[in-house]
Design a protein around this nucleic acid. Structure first.
Length: 678
DNA sequence: TGGCGGCTAAACAAGG
DNA sequence: ACCTTGTTTAGCCGCC
């Protein structure tokens, strides 16, 4: 079956013509008229404004540029972070030059790294999803552009043939139809991009400066006739091509000057260049000049621009480059925070890469289905080398972040010196063979808070990322969420699979672990019921095993309170406990979702226990543990748990395949679902 | 270095 | 015979 991936379509056209009809259905008909998709219903006033085609074209182009720049900036920042050496930056300016185009290829970051990053989960999954959506739209658009070019060439060829031979009108018509269909796919995708950008804007991830004219975000297809679309497409592509052929292509963008800090993903800002908008026409700040200046300017640095430090979440003002270097070495030296931030950056980038791989595969499948030659034949059955390696490498075959390599997860595992370049936290050090399991340093587990899991509920539902909680915590949560505070074993299983995509795999493993935990921990009490046995939670026992470690370390708490944006989870832990005292910091995410709310509150409660101990300076006799060991350390394991895991494409984030309207009644227990095989 | 918490794997038993 | 449920043991890892 060929399920349309556009616009959340559920139609499954099984033939080319059917697909085209299907695509027409989506593209030619404004979604707002046909299917009131949520994304349209959320349109802002800006979106609703009438759009003129050239205006919209410019915006699309601009949006593409900005999105691309964001990605590249992320890559650059990650690279620079990885390269950074606290002592040498000022002495070896050559090493500060942004990475080359080649270095920004997906191969730079390995799947293992991605998994590792994912498992550390320093970054908010929501933020990741936003970035992924951006990237997805962007890359698909690029693919379609390439394809469309080919289609156009083909069409012209056939037109010529027809002029000479005066026949084959049917075939020509078909090609034209194909062309139009893909054109409309492209347009729809562009709409998606706009929506993503708007979404970012709504979430505060994208900043549009006040003076900026209202953006024309009306879906392009609306009110446009095919010829207009075609013309628009031509203009867009020609502009795009022209831009790329003028010396520096996009890969050489100097992001330090175009985009303002991407900082923490939550603060990711796409700031449209205000002085680029003239007469209401928005254009993107072309990076060309900056790129040139970057080359000419020895003091350029991917982490420095506009007198501001671009280190994620920093934005410290630095008068000149020297002061910036000083700042870089002093504020962003090799320490826990910098290491974590670097990993976050890698996480962002690699997530984007993975999503790109998936979308490429999807595009390839589309093309294959339509019997169209691909512009990237190699992308065919396997998404990308990047992904293939995940799929085929036995050591990395576990899609989950479990198969995480050795990385500097603690300060004692310092970043590789600059001289080793991108090998920092890269594959070379990660392909350790053997049953290596590594837990993350508590320092980095600490940040994962209940609030995070509450906030990112959808993420855990959809992404196969291991939840950073112990089995015991999760079991308890499942039980407490139940109306009667008791669950059968099977119901606990179902809760796991329902709430966490991760637990839709390796059922035998984690179910065994669940049973093991139920039996092992005193806090879980088995109660004989009429129908059988149910499990309940003995809160007293659970409190006994509650982590205490934080109580003895006030400085840590202080750090938590003042920690950096990337360490917000740390704050979140604290805030979670505050929330317990009727400060509803994290209740918004759970509003309208009682389950989520319960999850948040219960785990928050768990965390709060540690904080209570902290505040009261009470110390009981129970063995001390980090409060975040409740938010447990995630194991790193490099050997596959299940041989089946080595088969089929793996995905860390399966947002595209997991419906938001996840069927909660679906039973995953016996059949580890490989979503990618569907 | 040893204790501890946590996870995984596995063996085993009982019951349906 | 097979599956589910529940218990127990062992080994490993990371942290302290």
């Amino acid at each position: 079956m060929f399920q349309c991936v556009f616009s959340s379509s559920v139609l499954q056209p099984h033939s080319t013509s059917c697909l085209f009809k299907h695509l027409f259905h989506h593209s030619a008909t404004p979604a707002s008229q046909k299917q009131p998709e949520p994304i349209y219903s959320k349109k802002t006033e800006i979106q609703r404004q009438t759009v003129r085609a050239p205006f919209a074209k410019l915006f699309i182009f601009s949006a593409l540029q900005v999105a691309r720049q964001l990605l590249l900036q992320q890559q650059q920042q990650q690279q620079v972070s990885g390269l950074k050496s606290p002592k040498r930056n000022d002495k070896q300016p050559a090493l500060q030059v942004p990475v080359s185009v080649a270095m920004m290829t997906p191969q730079v970051i390995t799947p293992q790294q991605m998994q590792q990053i994912l498992q550390q989960q320093v970054l908010s999954p929501q933020q990741l999803q936003v970035l992924l959506q951006q990237q997805q739209a962007l890359m698909l658009q690029q693919q379609l552009q390439e394809f469309y070019k080919k289609q156009q060439e083909q069409l012209q060829l056939q037109l010529l043939q027809q002029q000479h031979a005066g026949k084959q009108p049917k075939e020509q018509q078909q090609v034209a139809t194909q062309q139009l269909a893909f054109q409309q796919q492209l347009l729809q995708m562009q709409q998606l991009q706009q929506q993503h950008l708007l979404s970012l804007q709504r979430q505060g991830l994208l900043t549009i400066q006040p003076g900026q004219p209202a953006l024309p975000l009306q879906p392009l297809a609306q009110g446009m006739i095919p010829t207009e679309l075609q013309q628009l497409w031509k203009e867009v592509t020609s502009a795009h091509t022209a831009e790329e052929t003028t010396g520096n292509n996009h890969s050489s963008l100097d992001l330090t000057t175009t985009c303002v800090s991407s900082s923490a993903p939550s603060k990711t800002s796409l700031i449209m260049n205000p002085h680029a908008s003239t007469n209401g026409q928005l254009s993107v700040h072309t990076p060309k000049r900056e790129s040139l200046s970057h080359e000419e300017h020895p003091h350029s640095h991917p982490l420095y621009g506009h007198g501001v430090c671009k280190w994620p979440g920093c934005e410290a003002v630095c008068e000149d480059f020297q002061s910036f270097l000083k700042h870089l070495n002093s504020e962003h030296a090799l320490d826990d925070r910098s290491t974590a931030q670097c990993r976050v950056q890698m996480q962002v980038v690699q997530q984007l890469e993975l999503q790109l791989a998936k979308d490429k595969e999807r595009l390839q499948a589309m093309m294959t289905h339509l019997h169209v030659k691909s512009t990237e034949p190699k992308a065919a059955p396997q998404p990308l080398n990047l992904v293939s390696s995940v799929t085929l490498s036995k050591s990395a075959s576990e899609a989950s972040p479990q198969s995480l390599p050795h990385t500097p997860t603690t300060p004692t595992a310092p970043l590789t010196p600059v001289t080793q370049g991108p090998s920092v936290i890269t594959t070379t050090s990660m392909h350790t063979v053997g049953p290596i399991r590594r837990r993350y340093s508590d320092k980095y587990n600490v940040p994962i808070s209940s609030a995070d899991i509450a906030q990112n509920q959808e993420f855990y539902k959809n992404a196969e990322v291991r939840p950073p909680f112990t089995y015991a915590s999760l079991i308890r949560q499942a039980i407490l969420e139940s109306p009667e505070k008791q669950l059968t074993l099977n119901e606990i299983y179902n809760w796991f699979t329902r709430m966490f995509a991760y637990f839709r795999r390796n059922a035998a493993t984690w179910k065994n672990a669940v049973r093991h935990n139920l039996s092992l921990h005193k806090c879980f009490v088995r109660v004989e019921n009429v129908k059988g046995a149910v499990w309940t939670v003995d809160e007293v026992e659970f409190q006994k095993r509650r982590p205490q470690k934080i109580s003895g370390n006030p400085s840590l708490i202080k750090n938590m309170q003042s920690s950096h944006a990337y360490c917000t989870p740390l704050n979140a832990a604290l805030q979670a406990s505050m929330a317990e005292n009727s400060i509803p910091l994290y209740t918004t995410a759970s509003m309208g979702n009682p389950t989520l709310g319960n999850l948040a509150s219960a785990i928050r409660e768990e965390l709060n226990g540690a904080m209570e101990h902290t505040n009261s300076n009470e110390s009981d006799s129970s063995p001390g543990r980090s409060p975040m060991q409740a938010v447990h350390p995630v194991h790193v394991k490099e050997e596959p748990l299940d041989p089946e895991e080595a088969e089929g494409p793996l995905s860390l984030v399966t947002t595209a395949n997991h419906s938001p309207d996840f069927d909660h009644d679906r039973d995953y227990e016996d059949e580890p679902v490989n979503e990618d095989m569907e």
